[in-house]
Simulated assay, not measured.
Amino acid sequence: MNQEIIKLRQELHKHPEVSNDEYHTSERIINYVKKFNPDEIIKLGETGVAFIFNGKEKGKTVVFRSELDALLIKEKSGVEYASVNDHIAHSCGHDGHMAILTGLIQVISKNRPVRGKVVMLFQPAEEVEQGACDVVENPKFINIQPDYLFALHNVPGFEKHTIVLKKGSFASASKGMTIKLTGKTVHAAEPQDGISPADAISDIIKELHVIRDDKTLFKDFVLLTIIHIQLGEISFGTSPGYAELRVTLRAFENEDMEVLTDKCEKTIREISRSEKLDCEISYSEDFPATVNNDYCVGVVEQSAKHIGLDIQNIEKPFKWSEDFGYFTEKYNACYFGLGSGKDQPQLHNPDFDFPDDIIESGINIFYAIYEKALSDD
């Protein structure tokens, strides 16, 4: 076990920072990696950073990516290196992912590429979707011209060290839909003189569920979750004139997300018009599906077999979303799972703590992928 990398992981765990505020985390990584003498250090935005190791000959460019951000969760793990930042915790394991990628740098610094180049990307703001989108659009990243990208995520519920793979869609598309309905507020004694959104909210919820359950519309799984409703004010003398409804849309496939979004929007606007309400629809945390490239999946599979790690091919994508989908939209890429234990607390749970004993497997699979991807013609 690499005790130096484990110590780094626990330091990162102790000092978590939320999306777009990962300044100290990024600085900690940069200061640690400098001693391994990367050929280039490229800042991407405020906190993103990429470390590049160049070969002497021209060849493929392979990118490995980790996330920097933590979550707004109060940790209840009980570990001695628990978060010192109130209500912020690495409850998704990004501290472990950073440790794996830093460990990969440590190994590659002693086994630099002969041809091509390898890039270790530490990306901000994965949890809010914006991070990968910003990196993909950053001219400095575009200039890197990746041929292949790889990333992993620890996956509770799978045996430790198992590589979890799937061709095609690996993680769901999702987006947050906010619906704002504006009518007219009046006295509660004369509701007929106003325009209340109450009936519209009720009808919208009912019809959105009808869309969700219509199996003829979609090729695969979709999900629609009502997460928040606000109607008027707490005043028994007032009939409401304003409402907000927030819904999470989710789909295994990007095509189904387009259909789901379109159908929901049309239904919402039709009901709003019938109730004489002004309607505004907006979106946030928009994650495309993470769709794996077949060749890249093959590289991961062959690499896992080469180093003796078990492989589990899943039949259906995960319901959770990943902003790595922004990379898979534009580049040949593979996102895969690293089993973190059958009894490991689930992601985003307050008692989650990344298991240090899978770090070595993460480093080894990434290094095997590095050797395979750069050696293929």
Rank of each mutant, 00 (worst) to 15 (best):
I52A: 05
G325A: 03
E80D: 15
I41A: 05
P146C: 00
I195H: 01
A70M: 08
A198K: 11
G341Y: 14
H228M: 12
N31R: 09
E360Y: 07
I234G: 13
A189Q: 08
N85P: 11
I307V: 08
I234W: 11
K342T: 12
V84T: 11
E371C: 10
Y335D: 09
E360T: 09
S303W: 01
G45Q: 13
I307N: 08
G194E: 15
Y148N: 12
A373F: 09
E57A: 09
E275T: 00
V300F: 04
S239A: 14
F221H: 14
E129Q: 09
Y295C: 02
N54L: 03
V186S: 13
K58A: 13
L152C: 15
G78R: 05
P139K: 08
I369E: 06
S19M: 03
Y367I: 04
T225M: 07
E46V: 15
D39N: 13
K34D: 11
N293V: 07
D357F: 03
V119A: 03
E280Y: 10
T328V: 02
I100V: 02
D134L: 06
M98V: 00
Y148L: 15
K175M: 10
H161Y: 11
H306S: 15
K160D: 14
E360I: 12
T216E: 11
Y23L: 06
D323C: 15
A132L: 13
E129P: 05
Y23C: 09
E11G: 09
I369G: 03
E207Q: 15
F122Y: 04
D351I: 15
S361W: 06
I205D: 12
T290V: 02
V119Q: 03
K175I: 02
Q344A: 08
D199G: 11
P345M: 12
D353M: 04
V33M: 07
G45L: 15
F287G: 04
E190K: 07
L12K: 01
E265T: 14
F53N: 06
H90I: 08
T261S: 08
P355E: 15
G103N: 04
D193Q: 14
I268A: 12
H348R: 14
F53E: 01
E80T: 05
Q344Y: 13
K184N: 00
H228C: 09
A151H: 02
N54K: 12
F352H: 08
K330N: 13
V155C: 12
A373V: 05
Y335G: 10
S172R: 00
Q130R: 15
V300T: 03
F51Y: 06
V135K: 05
